[in-house]
Simulated scan of single mutants.
Amino acid sequence: MTDHDELRLLPWSTLDGKPCFLSTDSAGGPLSRLADRTETAQLDTGAALLEHAVEVIADTETEPEELLLLTTALTNTLRDTLRIAESRGHRLPTPSTTPDGDHEEPRLPAAAFG
């Protein structure tokens, strides 16, 4: 299980749009690695789409149909990105509490940031 003893939200959904979750004792199992690779691909796609969107928006001769397609693609990419952020947020370590009741700042390895 994860540090929070929760299920991992996977970066894809079922055919009817419901979220998929993974329950495992190993963060390095085959399905976890597939999810990690899928997240990376989704974020790379989002970065490329953002670059394309900047070009399309700057073009004063862009047709409304192209803007509609771009908006649809950006919406789908934003949905993927928010799912990844939610999944990764749930996997962050829980801050420990100091004797005076304050929470310590979590310390994460550089690999946690992508």
Rank of each mutant, 00 (worst) to 15 (best):
S87V: 03
A27N: 06
L50K: 02
T62K: 08
D5K: 09
T81P: 06
P93Q: 09
W12K: 12
P109K: 10
A27V: 04
E66M: 07
D5R: 10
Q42R: 10
D36H: 00
D80S: 15
T2F: 08
L70V: 02
D3Y: 08
P11L: 06
H4L: 06
S32G: 03
T81F: 07
P30R: 13
E65N: 06
P11K: 07
L31N: 07
T2W: 06
T62E: 13
N76K: 12
R37H: 03
D16Y: 05
A110S: 02
P109F: 02
G101I: 03
L78M: 11
P30N: 10
G46I: 03
G28Y: 01
T97I: 13
E86G: 02
F21Q: 08
R91T: 08
N76G: 15
L34W: 01
A27Q: 10
E6N: 08
M1Q: 09
L7C: 03
I57W: 07
L108I: 06
E6M: 07
S13F: 02
E65H: 04
A112I: 00
E65P: 00
R79E: 15
A27Y: 02
T2V: 05
G17A: 14
I84E: 05
W12P: 10
E63T: 11
L68H: 05
H90D: 11
R37C: 01
L34P: 00
R37P: 00
T98Q: 07
L31G: 01
P106V: 15
R37G: 01
F113W: 11
S96P: 04
T24F: 09
L50T: 04
W12L: 09
L49P: 03
P30W: 09
L9D: 05
P19M: 09
L22K: 08
A27D: 14
Q42K: 13
H52V: 06
L50Y: 05
R33K: 09
D80F: 09
T94P: 06
T77C: 14
L50F: 04
R88N: 12
